[in-house]
Protein backbone atom coordinates (compact mmCIF):
# COMPACT_ATOMS: atom_id res chain seq x y z
CA UNK A 1 0.00 0.00 0.00
CA UNK A 2 2.79 2.41 0.97
CA UNK A 3 4.68 1.31 -2.12
CA UNK A 4 1.64 1.92 -4.26
CA UNK A 5 1.30 5.49 -3.05
CA UNK A 6 4.97 6.15 -3.73
CA UNK A 7 4.69 4.77 -7.27
CA UNK A 8 1.59 6.83 -7.89
CA UNK A 9 3.33 9.92 -6.62
CA UNK A 10 6.32 9.27 -8.84
CA UNK A 11 4.03 8.82 -11.84
CA UNK A 12 2.19 12.06 -11.07
CA UNK A 13 5.49 13.91 -10.94
CA UNK A 14 6.74 12.25 -14.11
CA UNK A 15 3.78 13.32 -16.23
CA UNK A 16 3.62 16.75 -14.68
CA UNK A 17 7.28 17.41 -15.40
CA UNK A 18 6.96 16.06 -18.92
CA UNK A 19 4.03 18.41 -19.50
CA UNK A 20 5.86 21.37 -18.01
CA UNK A 21 8.90 20.65 -20.20
CA UNK A 22 6.72 20.57 -23.30
CA UNK A 23 5.24 23.84 -22.20
CA UNK A 24 8.38 25.67 -21.11
CA UNK A 25 11.11 24.55 -23.51
CA UNK A 26 9.60 26.37 -26.50
CA UNK A 27 8.92 29.42 -24.34
CA UNK A 28 12.44 29.58 -22.96
CA UNK A 29 13.92 28.92 -26.39
CA UNK A 30 11.82 31.66 -27.87
CA UNK A 31 12.81 34.07 -25.16
CA UNK A 32 16.52 33.33 -25.54
CA UNK A 33 16.15 33.51 -29.30
CA UNK A 34 14.50 36.91 -29.00
CA UNK A 35 17.53 38.20 -27.10
CA UNK A 36 19.94 37.47 -29.93
CA UNK A 37 19.10 40.46 -32.07
CA UNK A 38 22.67 41.75 -31.76
CA UNK A 39 25.46 39.39 -32.73
CA UNK A 40 27.46 37.92 -29.86
CA UNK A 41 25.53 39.45 -26.95
CA UNK A 42 22.14 39.00 -25.41
CA UNK A 43 20.10 42.16 -25.82
CA UNK A 44 16.63 43.50 -26.19
CA UNK A 45 17.43 44.89 -29.62
CA UNK A 46 14.75 42.76 -31.26
CA UNK A 47 12.15 44.25 -28.93
CA UNK A 48 13.39 47.73 -29.73
CA UNK A 49 13.01 46.99 -33.42
CA UNK A 50 9.52 45.70 -32.87
CA UNK A 51 8.44 48.78 -30.98
CA UNK A 52 10.17 51.08 -33.43
CA UNK A 53 8.20 49.74 -36.38
CA UNK A 54 5.22 52.07 -36.92
CA UNK A 55 3.24 49.20 -38.40
CA UNK A 56 3.49 47.38 -35.09
CA UNK A 57 1.58 50.08 -33.29
CA UNK A 58 -0.84 50.63 -36.17
CA UNK A 59 -1.78 46.98 -36.48
CA UNK A 60 -1.93 46.50 -32.73
CA UNK A 61 -4.22 49.49 -32.31
CA UNK A 62 -6.37 48.26 -35.16
CA UNK A 63 -6.77 44.85 -33.51
CA UNK A 64 -7.37 46.48 -30.15
CA UNK A 65 -10.12 48.57 -31.70
CA UNK A 66 -11.65 45.49 -33.32
CA UNK A 67 -11.55 43.63 -30.01
CA UNK A 68 -13.29 46.50 -28.23
CA UNK A 69 -16.05 46.52 -30.86
CA UNK A 70 -16.30 42.75 -30.66
CA UNK A 71 -16.63 42.87 -26.89
CA UNK A 72 -19.29 45.57 -27.01
CA UNK A 73 -21.35 43.97 -29.76
CA UNK A 74 -20.89 40.52 -28.27
CA UNK A 75 -21.98 41.54 -24.77
CA UNK A 76 -24.89 43.67 -25.94
CA UNK A 77 -26.13 40.80 -28.05
CA UNK A 78 -25.48 37.87 -25.75
CA UNK A 79 -26.04 39.18 -22.21
CA UNK A 80 -29.75 40.04 -22.66
CA UNK A 81 -30.25 36.82 -24.59
CA UNK A 82 -28.67 34.73 -21.86
CA UNK A 83 -30.68 36.51 -19.15
CA UNK A 84 -33.93 36.06 -21.06
CA UNK A 85 -33.26 32.41 -21.61
CA UNK A 86 -32.31 31.67 -18.05
CA UNK A 87 -35.17 33.65 -16.62
CA UNK A 88 -38.09 33.38 -19.00
CA UNK A 89 -37.60 30.80 -21.70
CA UNK A 90 -35.51 27.88 -20.48
CA UNK A 91 -37.07 26.02 -23.39
CA UNK A 92 -34.78 27.95 -25.71
CA UNK A 93 -31.65 26.92 -23.86
CA UNK A 94 -30.91 23.82 -25.93
CA UNK A 95 -31.26 25.88 -29.11
CA UNK A 96 -28.73 28.43 -27.94
CA UNK A 97 -26.43 25.70 -26.74
CA UNK A 98 -26.66 24.09 -30.15
CA UNK A 99 -25.71 27.41 -31.70
CA UNK A 100 -22.81 27.71 -29.32
CA UNK A 101 -21.40 24.52 -30.83
CA UNK A 102 -21.73 25.87 -34.35
CA UNK A 103 -18.50 27.91 -34.43
CA UNK A 104 -16.77 24.60 -33.83
CA UNK A 105 -18.54 22.99 -36.77
CA UNK A 106 -17.87 26.02 -38.93
CA UNK A 107 -14.17 26.74 -38.39
CA UNK A 108 -12.88 30.30 -38.99
CA UNK A 109 -11.59 29.36 -42.43
CA UNK A 110 -15.02 28.21 -43.54
CA UNK A 111 -16.72 31.14 -41.81
CA UNK A 112 -14.46 33.59 -43.66
CA UNK A 113 -15.23 31.83 -46.91
CA UNK A 114 -18.97 32.04 -46.30
CA UNK A 115 -18.87 35.67 -45.24
CA UNK A 116 -16.88 36.63 -48.32
CA UNK A 117 -19.16 34.72 -50.67
CA UNK A 118 -22.36 36.08 -49.18
CA UNK A 119 -21.34 39.68 -48.57
CA UNK A 120 -19.22 40.24 -51.69
CA UNK A 121 -21.98 41.36 -53.99
CA UNK A 122 -24.68 44.04 -53.89
CA UNK A 123 -27.02 44.66 -52.18
CA UNK A 124 -25.05 43.38 -49.19
CA UNK A 125 -21.53 44.48 -49.97
CA UNK A 126 -19.89 44.34 -46.60
CA UNK A 127 -16.51 42.77 -47.41
CA UNK A 128 -14.80 46.12 -47.45
CA UNK A 129 -16.28 47.16 -44.13
CA UNK A 130 -14.59 46.34 -40.83
CA UNK A 131 -18.11 45.62 -39.55
CA UNK A 132 -17.91 42.23 -41.25
CA UNK A 133 -14.67 41.46 -39.44
CA UNK A 134 -16.25 42.41 -36.11
CA UNK A 135 -19.29 40.28 -36.93
CA UNK A 136 -17.03 37.35 -37.66
CA UNK A 137 -15.18 37.90 -34.39
CA UNK A 138 -18.46 38.00 -32.48
CA UNK A 139 -19.41 34.66 -34.04
CA UNK A 140 -16.04 33.17 -33.09
CA UNK A 141 -16.14 34.41 -29.50
CA UNK A 142 -19.87 33.76 -29.01
CA UNK A 143 -19.35 30.34 -27.33
CA UNK A 144 -16.89 31.77 -24.78
CA UNK A 145 -19.01 34.79 -24.02
CA UNK A 146 -22.20 32.76 -23.77
CA UNK A 147 -20.70 30.12 -21.51
CA UNK A 148 -19.08 32.67 -19.18
CA UNK A 149 -22.35 34.58 -18.84
CA UNK A 150 -24.39 31.41 -18.48
CA UNK A 151 -22.21 30.05 -15.65
CA UNK A 152 -22.41 33.46 -14.02
CA UNK A 153 -26.19 33.45 -14.25
CA UNK A 154 -26.68 29.87 -13.07
CA UNK A 155 -24.40 30.37 -10.09
CA UNK A 156 -26.34 33.37 -8.80
CA UNK A 157 -29.80 31.86 -8.69
CA UNK A 158 -31.29 34.39 -11.04
CA UNK A 159 -34.91 33.47 -10.55
CA UNK A 160 -34.97 33.80 -6.78
CA UNK A 161 -33.05 37.08 -6.93
CA UNK A 162 -35.42 38.64 -9.45
CA UNK A 163 -38.47 37.41 -7.59
CA UNK A 164 -37.10 38.83 -4.36
CA UNK A 165 -36.43 42.15 -6.10
CA UNK A 166 -39.88 42.16 -7.68
CA UNK A 167 -41.52 41.48 -4.35
CA UNK A 168 -39.67 44.51 -3.03
CA UNK A 169 -41.15 46.57 -5.83
CA UNK A 170 -38.17 46.81 -8.19
CA UNK A 171 -38.86 47.37 -11.88
CA UNK A 172 -37.13 45.55 -14.70
CA UNK A 173 -34.53 48.18 -15.37
CA UNK A 174 -33.44 48.44 -11.78
CA UNK A 175 -33.39 44.65 -11.51
CA UNK A 176 -31.11 44.50 -14.53
CA UNK A 177 -28.76 47.28 -13.51
CA UNK A 178 -28.82 46.99 -9.74
CA UNK A 179 -29.04 43.26 -9.28
CA UNK A 180 -28.21 41.14 -12.28
CA UNK A 181 -25.33 43.04 -13.84
CA UNK A 182 -23.43 43.76 -10.60
CA UNK A 183 -23.65 40.09 -9.72
CA UNK A 184 -22.52 39.21 -13.21
CA UNK A 185 -19.43 41.41 -13.00
CA UNK A 186 -16.96 38.55 -12.84
CA UNK A 187 -18.54 36.71 -15.72
CA UNK A 188 -18.62 39.89 -17.80
CA UNK A 189 -14.97 40.59 -17.13
CA UNK A 190 -14.03 36.99 -17.89
CA UNK A 191 -15.86 37.16 -21.17
CA UNK A 192 -14.15 40.45 -21.94
CA UNK A 193 -10.62 39.23 -21.34
CA UNK A 194 -11.19 35.98 -23.12
CA UNK A 195 -12.56 37.77 -26.15
CA UNK A 196 -9.63 40.13 -26.03
CA UNK A 197 -7.16 37.23 -25.89
CA UNK A 198 -8.90 35.57 -28.84
CA UNK A 199 -9.24 38.61 -31.07
CA UNK A 200 -6.01 40.51 -30.49
CA UNK A 201 -3.73 38.11 -32.36
CA UNK A 202 -6.37 36.50 -34.57
CA UNK A 203 -5.06 35.60 -37.98
CA UNK A 204 -7.52 33.60 -40.04
CA UNK A 205 -10.40 36.05 -40.47
CA UNK A 206 -8.11 39.08 -40.59
CA UNK A 207 -5.86 37.63 -43.26
CA UNK A 208 -8.66 36.21 -45.39
CA UNK A 209 -10.75 39.38 -45.17
CA UNK A 210 -7.53 41.30 -45.86
CA UNK A 211 -7.29 43.62 -42.86
CA UNK A 212 -4.02 45.07 -41.53
CA UNK A 213 -4.56 43.52 -38.13
CA UNK A 214 -1.99 42.43 -35.57
CA UNK A 215 -2.11 38.73 -36.54
CA UNK A 216 -1.34 39.27 -40.23
CA UNK A 217 1.31 41.82 -39.23
CA UNK A 218 3.04 39.23 -37.06
CA UNK A 219 2.83 36.65 -39.83
CA UNK A 220 4.34 39.17 -42.21
CA UNK A 221 7.22 39.98 -39.86
CA UNK A 222 7.83 36.26 -39.48
CA UNK A 223 8.39 35.90 -43.20
CA UNK A 224 11.06 38.59 -43.40
CA UNK A 225 12.89 38.72 -40.08
CA UNK A 226 14.49 36.26 -37.67
CA UNK A 227 14.57 37.54 -34.08
CA UNK A 228 11.72 40.02 -34.07
CA UNK A 229 9.11 37.28 -34.48
CA UNK A 230 10.45 35.63 -31.35
CA UNK A 231 10.08 38.92 -29.50
CA UNK A 232 6.52 39.24 -30.79
CA UNK A 233 5.74 35.70 -29.67
CA UNK A 234 6.95 36.53 -26.15
CA UNK A 235 4.88 39.72 -26.11
CA UNK A 236 1.75 37.85 -27.25
CA UNK A 237 2.35 35.17 -24.73
CA UNK A 238 2.54 37.74 -21.99
CA UNK A 239 -0.75 39.25 -23.15
CA UNK A 240 -2.48 35.88 -23.19
CA UNK A 241 -1.04 35.03 -19.80
CA UNK A 242 -2.16 38.37 -18.42
CA UNK A 243 -5.71 37.95 -19.69
CA UNK A 244 -6.12 34.39 -18.43
CA UNK A 245 -4.54 35.14 -15.05
CA UNK A 246 -6.91 38.06 -14.64
CA UNK A 247 -9.85 35.79 -15.39
CA UNK A 248 -8.61 33.21 -12.90
CA UNK A 249 -7.96 35.88 -10.32
CA UNK A 250 -11.41 37.40 -10.79
CA UNK A 251 -13.29 34.15 -10.48
CA UNK A 252 -11.24 33.04 -7.49
CA UNK A 253 -13.26 32.42 -4.38
CA UNK A 254 -16.60 32.82 -6.05
CA UNK A 255 -18.52 29.60 -5.48
CA UNK A 256 -19.75 27.98 -8.64
CA UNK A 257 -18.03 30.54 -10.81
CA UNK A 258 -15.93 28.29 -12.96
CA UNK A 259 -14.28 30.41 -15.55
CA UNK A 260 -14.31 29.40 -19.14
CA UNK A 261 -10.72 29.36 -20.30
CA UNK A 262 -10.44 26.49 -22.73
CA UNK A 263 -9.45 27.56 -26.19
CA UNK A 264 -10.56 25.88 -29.38
CA UNK A 265 -8.95 27.05 -32.55
Amino acid sequence: MKNGTATRKAMSWFWLILGLLYFFIPLISTFLFSLRGKKGVLSFVAYQHVFADPKFLQSFLFSLQMSVYTIIVGLVLIVPTAILINLKIPKAKPIIELFSLMPFVIPPVVLAFGLIKFYANPPLTLVSSPALLVAGYVVISFPYIYRSIDTGLTSMDLKVLTEAAQSLGAGWLSILFKIILPNLRTALLSATFLTFATVIGELTLAVLLAWPAFGPYMAHVGRDLAYEPAALAILSFMMTWGSISLIQFLSHGIPGAKSEIGGLH
Binding site: F237, Q248, S259, I261
Partner: peptide, 22 residues
Protein backbone atom coordinates in the same frame (compact mmCIF):
# COMPACT_ATOMS: atom_id res chain seq x y z
CA UNK B 1 -5.51 25.18 -14.82
CA UNK B 2 -4.23 28.73 -15.41
CA UNK B 3 -1.39 27.24 -17.35
CA UNK B 4 -3.64 25.12 -19.50
CA UNK B 5 -5.88 28.08 -20.12
CA UNK B 6 -2.95 30.11 -21.36
CA UNK B 7 -1.34 27.35 -23.38
CA UNK B 8 -4.55 26.25 -25.07
CA UNK B 9 -5.15 29.86 -26.12
CA UNK B 10 -1.56 30.30 -27.19
CA UNK B 11 -1.93 29.26 -30.79
CA UNK B 12 -1.60 30.73 -34.23
CA UNK B 13 1.23 33.02 -35.23
CA UNK B 14 3.06 33.34 -31.90
CA UNK B 15 3.02 29.58 -31.38
CA UNK B 16 4.50 29.06 -34.82
CA UNK B 17 7.24 31.56 -33.97
CA UNK B 18 7.92 29.81 -30.70
CA UNK B 19 8.42 26.50 -32.46
CA UNK B 20 10.58 28.07 -35.14
CA UNK B 21 12.77 29.46 -32.36
CA UNK B 22 12.86 26.03 -30.77
Amino acid sequence: STFSGVASNFAGVPLAFAFIST
